[in-house]
Write a protein that binds this DNA or RNA. Sequence first.
DNA 1: GGAATAGTGTCTTTGAGACATTATAGT
DNA 2: ACTATAATGTCTCAAAGACACTATTCC
Lengths: 241, 241
Amino acid sequence: MAKPQSSAPAVLVAVDLVILTLRESQLHVLLIERGIEPHVGRLALPGGFLKHVEEDLLDAAHRKLAEEASLGANPPHLEHLSVYGTPGRDPRGRVLSVAYLAIAPRLPEPTAGKNASRACWLPIEGALSDEVHLAFDHRQILADGVERARDKLERTALATAFCGSTFTISDLQEVYEAVWGVRLDPRNFYRKVQSVPGFIVPAGPTRKAESGRPARLFRPGPQMTLRPPMTRPSPTDKEPT
Amino acid sequence: MAKPQSSAPAVLVAVDLVILTLRESQLHVLLIERGIEPHVGRLALPGGFLKHVEEDLLDAAHRKLAEEASLGANPPHLEHLSVYGTPGRDPRGRVLSVAYLAIAPRLPEPTAGKNASRACWLPIEGALSDEVHLAFDHRQILADGVERARDKLERTALATAFCGSTFTISDLQEVYEAVWGVRLDPRNFYRKVQSVPGFIVPAGPTRKAESGRPARLFRPGPQMTLRPPMTRPSPTDKEPT
DNA sequence: GGAATAGTGTCTTTGAGACATTATAGT
DNA sequence: ACTATAATGTCTCAAAGACACTATTCC
């Protein structure tokens, strides 16, 4: 591997993850309490430096997902979010943070990773409130990740990534309501979701209940992009607290 | 600046630009013929390594915009696109390319920059066709940039970035038709564009002509996000060649 | 029977698309 | 007059939203 002829500066590259899931009808993000400097004790997004110079970015993201969230086995949705590289964002030098957005179904309680003293799911509103001081510029990264998820729920089948392999239409509605922070009419939602070609397909005449009439089960359909899109109520409408 | 305690690997960081504009009702991209290795003589996106370790990414993008496209004075729309870091994408070593999308109004003929023998505007179809072999993974970056522009035309006022400070509704329609590659009904477009609150605002009762009835002039409105969005004809419809 | 949730039907309003018509310039 | 483009109006159809009603489970 040859060095460049001109003196191009080299920087450190980190990978950070915004991992979202649904817990008790609320959108949550996985945060860790940092165990090393800088920002020891602060809450931060899971992440870390590349392992070696030739590690692929997506591989690194998957590795972090396994290390710090125990989500290596069932790989959830994972996509590039953005890059954060403001000089001075990390006291250790010039660091580029390549951020990824991951969506996971409910599943496991988090286990503490290598550099993390503690890992926990936090509700989004809490994590973005003034009460919580995230390390580095992770608050901005988190905000961008949530915004990305809100956007993609409209025109892609991303919502199914929050659910397991099969789900009811109510489950799906729960996702939309939690991520968007709105209430939706179940009957219109039911009709709408089924009218979008390829969004969801019936998964056997199976059932599931707890109280009330059993619901039909569905699986994610072949279509990743929704046409026509799911429409989000305009922000001028009321949002429930 | 302290080195990290663990042996975190350092990589080279480049900034690459997808600069789009409209020329003769066609979407064009600015490409340069590379003057240095690797890929001498190949067409490539404008870009280059960070100048020094502390240079901000957005600053570097603006610098490249000025150096290689003479677009420093009137800063057009500029936004982060994505990151490309596959190991092996650059023979000089591990290189992260941070890609930016820039939208510019018509204006100037390009001038050759430092490392560029030649700079020119190429129609998108040509640049993405099999005839042209772009350097590195720039074909992918370009495709992503065009896709981003097509998307953002739907729900943001990005189209106005293609126009000057004032423009007619026909000018705007030209932008949508060129970027989307479709024909739109002028009357429905006229009505639609004016019905979106804050998209465009009248810029004096001024006029402008060439043949036919003079058209009213408009300026970009305060609203960057369009509600309701401009709707793109579904790809199942015919596309004109 | 009642409670709770799933699923269907109907009406109204809004907006997209097709297309006719009028208005204002140059020649 | 004629041509060309701008701007407005009208109609139809499809989809979003509001909401009444029926269906199937558990108690």
